[in-house]
Write a protein that binds this DNA or RNA. Structure first.
Lengths: 219, 219
DNA sequence: TCCACTAGGTACCGTACGGTACGGTTCTTG
DNA sequence: CAAGAACCGTACCGTACGGTACCTAGTGGA
């Protein structure tokens, strides 16, 4: 393992510029549109430079993931003490952020790319994507879970399990459907509300379950 | 809507044989391994026949989806009256079946294929996949939902919403992770149990919620 | 002024794909 | 048995990709 603490694996401004164009091509035209020739043309650089910088096409793809991950920085929760309303607010914000990230153009394009490659490269890209992209979101949520438990606001045995329950309630099959090409939700906030209400019914300490079930109409 | 009642869009035995080989190639080597030449060689047929039968490559892919869908027939629920234990059993069976289907080699390969193509064909394959593959499973689950509500065993406003809640609890992010190349769960049955318990805590009529939360350890 | 270095532009190579054409073979059908 | 369709095997075509080689234009330091 190479140290990933700093931002050592970053690239020169010129290279970031090229990677940005690569992402643009990928978003617009998918896998097939991201060719070395096309990228060289779009980014006004030479193919030779591409190969010098990134090694080969796989190296370019990995660099794109790293580049994209370096743009998305996770926000830290403030240090105020958690209350019930506070926790609910944080959970809903997390849920909205999660839906926002998953439905983003670049996220979808990169996930499609990694899924397409997973059959032939032993899921190298998939691992990269999960490692760089999801780990941070997971950590933030699990930290929130544990904080809630410490304050006596949440009940669960295993934070990971509880987090995956929340994840399932928030996302359901939406991610796969979007990957398949369906448009996303009209109202992420509403979905976030419903999911968090259900989650608190399951794992919340106080009885907020009664009203939660009244929230179920639109989809 | 075209009638999908009969099995009109089926193919000749020879063609089914070829489609079976095509699925095998796709599962083993992914998108890239499914070439017209490779398929002709593997299936001992000529490329000309492939083009005569399926039109072009996209037609072949669509035919593969239809063929696979025709193999998976959904089971109908028996007509006995639903009880609480009965319902739980049916829900768990459904959850296990769902996990089984989603983690199947062929299902994963077809989903990967459709996701890879979704950038360039306007999600034509994705629509086909959802339509042929998922609709039946969805219908079975929603029928179960409504039956449970009719018997006073489940509480919800919208059956579709309730179903998606169950789906999220059962699958969480597992499907996407498997699509990215991660191995599936060790124990589908355990996951099904936990998900159904949580679901009944949310939407069950009787108070089975207390013990449900004790089921949360392995993942 | 010269020189080493970086990077852009372009031509090129081998390969492999999707799709078509054609001769030979097997199977159906009257 | 004979005519015709269906089909197999293979050769072929145009294209486009990943990757390499070569040449040119700046640029900064001594």
């Amino acid at each position: 393992m190479i140290s990933d603490a700093g931002q050592m694996p970053e690239f020169t401004p010129r290279q970031n510029e090229v990677l940005e164009q690569a992402l643009r091509l990928l978003v617009e035209g998918g896998d097939k549109a991201l060719t070395t020739s096309g990228l060289a043309r779009a980014a006004n650089c030479s193919k030779e430079s591409l190969y010098k910088w990134f090694g080969d096409r796989d190296g370019l793809l990995a660099a794109m993931i790293a580049h994209q991950a370096s743009k998305v920085r996770t926000f830290e929760r403030g240090k105020e003490r958690l209350t019930a309303e506070n926790l609910r607010e944080h959970l809903e914000t997390f849920a909205r952020d999660l839906l926002e990230v998953l439905s983003g153009d670049i996220s979808l394009a990169l996930n499609r790319l990694a899924i397409g490659q997973s059959s032939r490269d032993g899921s190298k890209l998939g691992k990269l994507l999960v490692e760089h992209g999801r780990r941070q979101i997971d950590r933030r949520a699990i930290a929130l879970m544990n904080a809630g438990k410490r304050e006596g606001l949440l009940r669960f045995d295993d934070a990971d399990d509880a987090y995956h329950t929340l994840y399932g309630l928030v996302v359901s099959d939406l991610h796969v459907r979007m990957l398949l090409g369906e448009p996303g939700l009209k109202d992420n906030a509403r979905q976030a509300e419903r999911a968090v209400s259900a989650f608190l019914s399951l794992h919340g300490a106080r009885q907020e379950s009664g009203e939660a079930l009244r929230f179920s109409s639109g989809r």
